[in-house]
């Protein structure tokens, strides 16, 4: 509660406690999220404007003051497309994290605590979904849906994110349910629902959060793969994977249009993994202290 009343000092302390790599990762994530959210208000060029048609710029230009990261094969500003492209990747990741942690996390914590037939049924379903190769299942669903809007892609990826979160949450819930403070709560007659929401879920959350950061990185790569295969949102909406796909035909002429979105994806995934690892380690320390 103290944190919520005045979060900035606490956030600053948290930031100062981070190792350098985690600090850099955090800065990158914050910057890319900020830019993606406020792209419309930033002094960016139209990400779909093809200047070469009007003779205003050239295709596959190198970096310049006019185009900070150069232009793509249709003379569109790469810097602008990277920022707008982040929207797709981050939106899909966000939906996956929310759906995964809310639905999968709750379901896993619930069945890990209650056990019994419900647990068997839920985990069997989860195992069946996880048994399919993820990308293949995703391709099948996306192809089946025909429409490839951001909403559809997000919903599908979000749905496919639920099973792994369920497994992670259940594993943690199983362990926490046997801890002394949970047994003590039950021994004094605390209702099961209260135990679940007051004792189990709050202690499952750090693991879910750590997993969410790492899984978000995976979702970014997944969406990139979809886009690379031409199965993510339709052009001209920029996506990092789509940008890589479209630039590869000119890779012998110039590397920039491939390197820029690849770099954005690599740095984002690296940052999420680094921060996720750090959160996980902190969670372990906290768990040991309980």
């Amino acid at each position: 509660m103290k944190f919520l009343k005045n979060p900035f000092p606490a956030m600053w302390r948290l930031y100062r406690s981070m190792p350098l790599t985690v600090k850099l990762g955090t800065i990158w994530i914050v910057a890319i999220v900020f830019a993606a959210i406020f792209a419309d208000f930033l002094p960016l060029k139209d990400p779909n404007y093809q200047g070469f048609i009007m003779g205003e710029s050239k295709v596959n230009e190198g970096p310049s003051l006019k185009h900070l990261l150069g232009t793509d094969d249709l003379s569109r500003d790469l810097f602008s497309r990277i920022i707008y492209g982040a929207r797709v990747s981050l939106t899909v990741s966000f939906v996956a994290v929310v759906a995964g942690s809310a639905i999968g996390g709750f379901l896993g914590a619930l069945v890990g605590y209650t056990r019994g037939k419900v647990e068997a049924a839920v985990m069997a379903t989860v195992d069946v979904i996880l048994a399919f190769p993820g990308l293949v299942l995703l391709l099948a669903l996306v192809t089946f849906m025909q429409t490839r809007s951001l909403f559809v892609i997000s919903v599908i990826v979000g749905f496919l994110s639920i099973p792994p979160y369920t497994r992670v949450a259940r594993a943690n819930s199983l362990s926490i349910s046997r801890r002394e403070f949970v047994l003590a709560a039950r021994a004094i007659g605390t209702p099961r629902r209260t135990v679940l929401f007051r004792e189990v879920i709050p202690n499952v959350l750090p693991s879910i959060m750590a997993y969410a950061l790492v899984a978000a990185a995976g979702v970014i790569v997944l969406e990139g793969s979809l886009a690379f295969l031409g199965l993510s949102v339709q052009p001209p909406t920029p996506t990092w994977g789509g940008m890589i796909n479209q630039a590869r035909k000119d890779i012998k002429l110039t590397l920039f249009p491939v390197l820029v979105p690849s770099g954005a994806m690599v740095f984002t995934v690296l940052a999420l993994n680094t921060v996720g690892d750090w959160v996980r380690k902190r969670g372990q320390v906290r768990g040991a202290a309980l």
């Binding site: 052009p235 796909n245 035909k249």
Partner: peptide
């Protein structure tokens, strides 16, 4: 990729 570019 080439057709995507042309289409755009």
């Amino acid at each position: 990729p080439t057709l995507i570019a042309a289409m755009q």
